[in-house]
Write a protein that binds this DNA or RNA. Structure first.
Length: 273
DNA sequence: TCCCAGGCTCTCT
DNA sequence: AGAGAGCATGGG
C-alpha cells in the first residue's frame, strides 16, 4: 500500500502502484492539466492549484496542505483503490490484458460533477486539443483568479450568462447546451451530488434530460464525475477498438469496472492506431 | 486544403 | 425505431 508523508510543504506519495502522471493526467479524462518544460504537471481542481512531479521514485505534490490532501486530492487521484487487483481480474481476457498492461499507470480521477458535465458537453464532436482550449477560455473568462490560474466557473455563474457572453469561449453549437446544463444544475432541478448515490439507469436518464447530453456524455459524467465506475462511455475511438479487438462487443470482464476497462482500451487504441 | 473530432438533435421514413 | 443530415469551430 502507498504511504503518504508530509515534509516541508511537500506531500510525498511513496510505494504507490499504477500511478503514472502522464498517463493519468493526459489520457483524455480531464482537460485542465498541463506539463511544464521541466516535466512538472500543473493543474486546478476543486478551486485549488497544485503541481506534481517525480522525486526518487516518489510522486511529490506541492501547493497543497495536509488538509487539502486528505479532503480533496486523496479522493481525486483515487488513491484508495487497488488498481493492481482490478488489472489482475480484468486480465482474464487476454485482449483486455494487453490494453491494461499498456495503460497500467492510469488512475480514474474523481472530478467535480459540474466540471465533468460541462467539459464532456464541450467534448462532443470535438477533438481533445480544442476541448482543452475551450475549457481554458471558459475558466479564464468566467472563473475566479487564484495563484496558478483560474478556477472552473460554477453552474450559478454560467447560468447568469447569455449566449452572447459565451461567444468568447468559441464552443460553437455547444454553448446552448452548456447554458441549459447550468440552468438545470443551478436551479436545483438536477442535483448532481445526489446522482452519486442514485442507481445508474436513473442517474443516466436524468443527465440525458439536459440538452446536448446523450448516452456517451452521460456515461462520461457518471464515470468521471459521479463515481459510477461501471459506466462505459462509447465514443468513436472505443467503437473502433471494440470492432477491431473485440468483434464489436464489450468484454464480459468489463461488467463491474466497465469505466476503468474502457479507459485502458481508449488509451491503448488512441496510441496504437 | 480538407477531413474529422471522447455526439447530439431534429427530421423524415 | 432507425437512418441521415446538419451542426460551429479549428487542429493536424
Amino acid at each position: 500500500m502507498n504511504e503518504i508523508n508530509f515534509k516541508n510543504d511537500k506531500i510525498y506519495i511513496t510505494n504507490v502502484k499504477n500511478f503514472d502522471l502522464s498517463q493519468t493526467l493526459d489520457c483524455g479524462q480531464a482537460f485542465r492539466w498541463y506539463q511544464k518544460n521541466n516535466g512538472t504537471w500543473c493543474g486546478i481542481a476543486f478551486g485549488k492549484y497544485i503541481e506534481l512531479f517525480y522525486e526518487n521514485s516518489s510522486i511529490v505534490i506541492t501547493g497543497a496542505t495536509e488538509n487539502d490532501f486528505n479532503n480533496v486530492w486523496k479522493e481525486y487521484f483515487d488513491l484508495d483503490r487497488n488498481y493492481e487487483q482490478i488489472i489482475e481480474e480484468v486480465s482474464q481476457n487476454p485482449t483486455v490484458a494487453k490494453a491494461a498492461e499498456y495503460s497500467s499507470g492510469i488512475r480514474l480521477l474523481n472530478q467535480e460533477p459540474w466540471e465533468a458535465l460541462c467539459s464532456f458537453i464541450i467534448s462532443q464532436n470535438n477533438n481533445i486539443p480544442r476541448i482543452k482550449g475551450i475549457v481554458e477560455r471558459l475558466c479564464e473568462s468566467f472563473g475566479s483568479k487564484i495563484d496558478g490560474g483560474y478556477t472552473f466557473p460554477s453552474a450559478q455563474t454560467i447560468a447568469a450568462l447569455t449566449l452572447d457572453d459565451l461567444a468568447v469561449i468559441r464552443s460553437g453549437f455547444r454553448a446552448k447546451y452548456i447554458l441549459d446544463a447550468a440552468i438545470k444544475v443551478s436551479s436545483g432541478e438536477i442535483n448532481l451530488e445526489a446522482l452519486k448515490s442514485t442507481d445508474y439507469d436513473t442517474a443516466r436518464n436524468i443527465l440525458m434530460s439536459i440538452k446536448g447530453v446523450g448516452p456517451k456524455v452521460a456515461d462520461c459524467v457518471l464515470l468521471y464525475g459521479l463515481s459510477h465506475k461501471n459506466a462505459f462511455p462509447r465514443d468513436v475511438w472505443i467503437n473502433r477498438a471494440l470492432e477491431q479487438m473485440f468483434d464489436g462487443n464489450i468484454p464480459d470482464c468489463a461488467k463491474q469496472y466497465g469505466g476503468i476497462v474502457q479507459q485502458y482500451i481508449f488509451h491503448y487504441i488512441r496510441n496504437n492506431q
